[in-house]
Simulated scan of single mutants.
Amino acid sequence: MINELDCRQLLHVYSLVMEQGEPTEYGKQYQGIEAFSDYDGYSIYLRGNGVQLKLGFHNTYHLDYDDEWQKERFLRVLKVMLQSINKCSAP
Results as ranks from 00 to 15, higher is better:
1 M>H: 14
1 M>T: 09
1 M>R: 13
2 I>K: 14
2 I>P: 06
3 N>E: 13
3 N>R: 13
4 E>M: 10
4 E>K: 11
5 L>K: 07
6 D>I: 07
6 D>Y: 06
7 C>M: 09
7 C>A: 14
10 L>N: 04
10 L>V: 04
10 L>P: 02
10 L>K: 02
10 L>G: 00
11 L>H: 15
11 L>D: 15
12 H>V: 03
12 H>D: 06
13 V>R: 01
15 S>A: 15
15 S>N: 15
15 S>H: 06
16 L>Q: 07
19 E>T: 01
19 E>C: 01
19 E>V: 04
19 E>H: 05
20 Q>R: 11
21 G>Q: 08
23 P>W: 10
23 P>D: 10
24 T>I: 08
25 E>W: 15
25 E>T: 14
25 E>N: 15
26 Y>H: 12
26 Y>V: 08
29 Q>A: 13
29 Q>C: 13
30 Y>R: 08
31 Q>S: 11
31 Q>N: 10
32 G>V: 03
32 G>E: 07
32 G>W: 01
33 I>T: 05
33 I>F: 00
33 I>N: 01
34 E>D: 12
34 E>S: 10
34 E>W: 08
35 A>W: 05
35 A>M: 08
36 F>A: 04
37 S>D: 11
37 S>H: 08
37 S>T: 09
37 S>F: 03
37 S>N: 13
39 Y>W: 15
39 Y>N: 13
40 D>V: 15
40 D>I: 14
40 D>M: 15
41 G>C: 08
41 G>E: 11
42 Y>T: 14
42 Y>D: 15
43 S>F: 13
43 S>Q: 14
43 S>V: 11
44 I>R: 03
47 R>S: 09
47 R>C: 06
48 G>Y: 03
48 G>S: 06
49 N>S: 06
49 N>Q: 10
50 G>Y: 01
51 V>W: 00
52 Q>H: 08
52 Q>L: 08
53 L>S: 03
53 L>Y: 00
54 K>P: 01
56 G>A: 09
56 G>L: 05
57 F>R: 07
60 T>R: 09
61 Y>P: 01
63 L>E: 04
64 D>L: 09
65 Y>W: 12
65 Y>K: 08
66 D>S: 12
66 D>N: 15
67 D>G: 12
68 E>R: 09
69 W>V: 10
69 W>Y: 15
69 W>S: 11
70 Q>P: 03
73 R>T: 07
73 R>W: 02
75 L>N: 00
77 V>W: 02
79 K>Y: 09
79 K>T: 11
79 K>W: 01
81 M>P: 00
82 L>T: 03
82 L>Q: 09
83 Q>Y: 12
83 Q>V: 11
83 Q>K: 10
83 Q>D: 12
84 S>F: 07
85 I>R: 03
86 N>I: 09
88 C>I: 12
89 S>A: 05
89 S>N: 11
90 A>D: 09
90 A>H: 13
90 A>P: 02
